[in-house]
Amino acid sequence: MPALVRHTRPHEFAPAREGWDRNRIRTVLYWATTLVILVELASGSVWNLVPIDWITAQLDHLGYPSYFAGILGVWQVAAAAAIIAPRFALTKEWAYAGCCFLWSGAVWSHLIAGDSPSLWGVPLVFGVCAVASWVLRPTDRRLPVTLLHRHRGSVGDERAQGSRSRAFGAGHRAWAVAAGLLVAAYAFSLLTLPVIEPVMHERAVELGWLDP
Rank of each mutant, 00 (worst) to 15 (best):
P2S: 14
A3I: 12
L4M: 03
L4V: 07
V5Y: 15
V5I: 14
R6D: 02
R6T: 12
R6I: 10
H7W: 03
H7P: 00
E12V: 03
E12G: 01
F13V: 01
R17M: 09
R22E: 15
R22T: 10
N23R: 08
R24I: 15
T27N: 15
T27V: 09
L29A: 14
L29Q: 14
L29H: 14
T33Q: 13
T34K: 07
T34E: 00
L35A: 08
L35F: 04
V36R: 13
V36A: 05
I37A: 01
V39I: 07
E40R: 15
L41S: 07
S43R: 13
G44H: 02
V46N: 06
V46L: 08
N48H: 12
V50P: 01
I52M: 05
A57Q: 05
H61F: 01
G63M: 01
F68R: 10
F68H: 07
A69M: 05
I71A: 10
W75G: 04
Q76Y: 06
A81C: 02
A81F: 03
A81L: 03
A82Q: 04
A85M: 10
P86E: 11
F88A: 13
L90C: 06
K92V: 04
E93S: 03
W94K: 09
W94S: 11
W94D: 15
W94Q: 13
A97N: 09
G98S: 04
C100F: 12
W103K: 05
W103H: 12
G105Y: 05
G105A: 03
G105F: 04
V107I: 04
S109G: 02
S109P: 03
S109W: 00
I112V: 15
G114K: 00
D115Q: 00
S116C: 11
S116Q: 02
S116V: 14
L119V: 14
L119P: 03
W120F: 11
V122H: 05
F126P: 14
G127S: 13
V128G: 03
C129Y: 01
C129T: 07
A130R: 12
V131M: 04
A132C: 08
S133N: 02
W134L: 08
W134E: 00
T139L: 15
R141G: 09
R142T: 01
R142Q: 11
P144E: 02
P144K: 02
V145F: 14
L148V: 10
H151I: 06
R152M: 12
R152Q: 10
S154W: 03
S154Q: 01
S154I: 05
S154C: 06
G156V: 07
D157A: 13
D157E: 12
Q161Y: 13
G162T: 07
S163W: 09
R164W: 07
R164H: 05
R166E: 14
A167I: 06
G169I: 02
G171K: 06
H172G: 13
H172C: 11
R173N: 01
W175R: 15
W175Y: 15
A179W: 12
A179S: 04
G180C: 05
L181G: 02
L181Y: 08
L182I: 07
V183I: 10
Y186P: 05
F188M: 09
L190I: 09
L193M: 08
E197A: 13
P198Y: 05
V199Q: 14
V199L: 08
L207A: 06
L207N: 02
G208N: 04
G208H: 03
G208W: 14
L210I: 08
P212I: 03
